[in-house]
Each structure stands twice: as C-alpha cells, then as structure tokens.
C-alpha cells in the first residue's frame, strides 16, 4: 500500500515538473530559435540544435534554480550546443568564421529588448496584399523549397528571390517602426 502511494506521488511530481518545463520552454524557445537562426546557416541546423538544447535542458532541469531566469539558462545551453554543432559543420562555406560567430553570439546574448516579435509581424503582414502575405509565409514554411516555388512561379530564380527579399524588407521596415513606436 505504501509503495503504491509513493509511486503515485512520484508520478504526480514528475507530471508537475514536466508541465512547468514545457510551459517555460514554450515561452522561451522562440527567442532561442531566433538567436540560433542568426548563427546557423540552415533551418535544419537550427532545429537540430534547438532540439538538442531542449533535451539537455530537460535532463538538467533539476539543476535549474527556481526564481532565476529560465530564458537566460536555456540561452546559455543553446549557445554551448550551437558551438558544439559548429565544430561539426565548420567546413561548410556557409558557417561563419570563429571571430564573426563570437561577435554575433556575444551581441545576441546581451539583447533583452528590441526583439522582432510575432505580434509586430502579424500587424505588418496584415498590411500586405493577401497574395503577397501568402507567398511570403509559403516560402518560410518548414519543408518548402524556395527554388521549387520559384520554378513554379514561371520567373527566373533571381527575379523570384528579389521579390521575396523586397517583401521581407517592407515587412521588416514596418516591424522596426512598430518597435520604435512601442518604445517611444
């Protein structure tokens, strides 16, 4: 009987611990992914390092001190995991040299404000024509190969990339304006 009660308590504690972890992870993961995107050359790399960092964080969750910043803790783990990953893929021409990597990682780690956030983006996407909005989201969807979309558009790849970049620029300018207004 006592053994069964102990098992139930343990299961209940595990559930609570798991729920707390997932809640924190969901809250902080977007910023970690955004940070990794500025270091790692492809989304596959970002996904792999994010998953690895999440797993490490879960395994070490007992070490995390309640009341301290989970975001900062996760960020540190992600930075280390990214560095480990970089060593594996350093030969790729897309991977930044060590000094550039360090500069970007250092500056991104220190940033707590001025992040491009989803709420800004949604407002600015709403200002695009529906077809432009759909196109921009389409080419940013996981698994979508931009070159294939370009070929189906009947345009040259270069022309297609320019259109996408122009849309990104319009949206980014709008987002930065929103951030500026928010901070004014």
């Amino acid at each position: 009987m006592d053994d069964q009660s102990d098992e139930k308590r343990t299961a209940s504690n595990d559930d609570e611990r798991y729920e707390v972890f997932v809640k924190l992870l969901v809250e902080h993961e977007p910023r970690v992914r955004s940070f990794l995107r500025g270091l790692l050359p492809t989304w596959n790399d970002v996904e792999e390092v994010t998953q690895e960092a999440s797993l490490v964080a879960w395994r070490k969750f007992d070490d995390f001190e309640k009341g301290t910043s989970f975001g900062g803790w996760l960020f540190t783990i992600a930075r280390f995991e990214a560095l480990k990953y970089r060593r594996r893929v350093a030969r790729s021409p897309l991977v930044f040299a060590g000094d550039v990597w360090d500069l970007l990682a250092e500056e991104a780690s220190g940033e707590e404000t001025q992040q491009v956030r989803r709420r800004h983006l949604e407002v600015c996407l709403g200002k695009l024509e529906l077809s432009q909005r759909d196109l921009l989201l389409n080419v940013h969807t996981s698994g979508v190969v931009m070159r294939k979309v370009a070929s189906q558009s009947g345009k040259s790849e270069q022309a297609f990339y320019k259109i996408i970049q122009r849309l990104r620029k319009v949206v980014l300018d709008c987002v930065l304006k929103s951030i500026e207004l928010e901070n004014a």
Partner: peptide, 29 residues
C-alpha cells in the same frame, strides 16, 4: 563576414533579418 566584422550597423541589420526569418517561419508553420 567582413562587413559583419567591420560594422555594428551591418550586424544589427543581419540580426534583424535573422529574427524576421525566425518569426516568419513560426507564423508560417
């Protein structure tokens, strides 16, 4: 990479586009 080494402004622009890329993917997915 040379531009990123030499210019804070270039690094800021780079980070903004990287952040935008991440948020666009989040919304798209």
């Amino acid at each position: 990479q040379q531009e990123l080494r030499d210019s804070v402004e270039a690094r800021t622009t780079f980070k903004r586009f990287a952040q935008l890329d991440a948020v666009l993917r989040e919304v798209a997915d």
